[in-house]
Design a protein around this nucleic acid. Sequence first.
DNA 1: TAAGAATTTGCACTGACTGCAAGTTTTAGT
DNA 2: ACTAAAACTTGCAGTCAGTGCAAATTCTTA
Lengths: 220, 220
Amino acid sequence: MEIEETAAAPGRRERKKRETRAALTAAALRLALEKGPDNVTVEEISEAADVSVRTFFNYFSHKEHAILGRDPDDLELALRRIREAPAGESPFATMRAIVARVLDDLESIEDQETALAQRIRLITESPNLLAQFVVLGSEDERDLAAALGDQMGEPLGSPLPALIVSATSMAVRVAVEQRKAGSDRSIRSLVDEGFSLLATGLDPHYDPTLESRTDQKGQA
Amino acid sequence: MEIEETAAAPGRRERKKRETRAALTAAALRLALEKGPDNVTVEEISEAADVSVRTFFNYFSHKEHAILGRDPDDLELALRRIREAPAGESPFATMRAIVARVLDDLESIEDQETALAQRIRLITESPNLLAQFVVLGSEDERDLAAALGDQMGEPLGSPLPALIVSATSMAVRVAVEQRKAGSDRSIRSLVDEGFSLLATGLDPHYDPTLESRTDQKGQA
DNA sequence: TAAGAATTTGCACTGACTGCAAGTTTTAGT
DNA sequence: ACTAAAACTTGCAGTCAGTGCAAATTCTTA
């Protein structure tokens, strides 16, 4: 009953699993777009993919995961990019490059919405999806931060790598939300501005000696 | 059937509502700590607070919200702090001050775990809670960013305020996760380091002319 | 081709959550 | 006080997500 991710010798079994998974994510995405993510039932998705409901849950533990259809290869790709970062590239630049890659993919199709673009839109519209997305994302972030820290030769437990990774996803998330809130600017330009601000600092006059001890005024 | 948040003239009705809500969050938190957040049923919580299950859902739309027991006043407090920020204080410093306030509250009780401290621990342990927390949080962030942007006199639609707010919550989240991952350092010191890094920039050698156009090497 | 492993499926069950209508409590007007 | 209206609570019936189990089915491999 264990569904593995082996990419080794693709026998018929392997192939069928991939097909089933693909059919499920495709059906889930299509139906989510048609009826709204929260109005789709697992039964419908399973029906459309022509498998039993029980089988759906053999592949995805949550309805949302099918809609998000996360491809494990994406994380793999990013991790590799980190490990193979050119000598001298700053870790922040590495992350920016990874994001840039995704943006390119996104733009290269322009009007014809890619599955990825559609999913991003859905995420901005459904709190449920956002929640699951973040949960999945935070697992990935752990791996990315570990890889980045390793690559940087940063002492274990340093918050820097985790911070950089989080900052990256944050820049993207903020950009997406700005768009959603009606900004005219392109995602790319918003992301660029975000990276730029994060790279050079959010507070030019920061006083580190002050640190966090409270110094409030009016307090209820 | 609408439960309002009126804080005006506290008649008996108002008082009872507060009591019920308090009883529910208290019961939810206690049970979540005892049995783990995912092993508590709404029925148990309602039982403990001595109301019907249906009533539970009149107060909280999700089980998790009762456990998180978010106090709307907290957001109010933060918003006020933003609006009343001393002239000349950088927006980033404002946010840091707000976080510092929370940390102080947290530490002032030390061993005797506050409800807040307990909740933070639960959140780090339960994906479900994390998810709901993020959803609630992202709503708050919108408000905070709006207030901050207003205070800064930033043009509407600028990503800066949103970025600063996100950065703040990010610094806290990363610090919490570092602790969870076994760091010896105090939350406060981790948070301070995060703020410091974000304030002064994540990439000292950032080249803004490069922007985000892809420049990758090995690609699968 | 047959044993054995991996998958699919049906079934029964728990638990979150919702709409509705009836019952109860609180408030307000007189 | 008395009472009608408004605000809350509750039970009930029902939908849907998600899980464990064991019987069927399909694939692999010797």
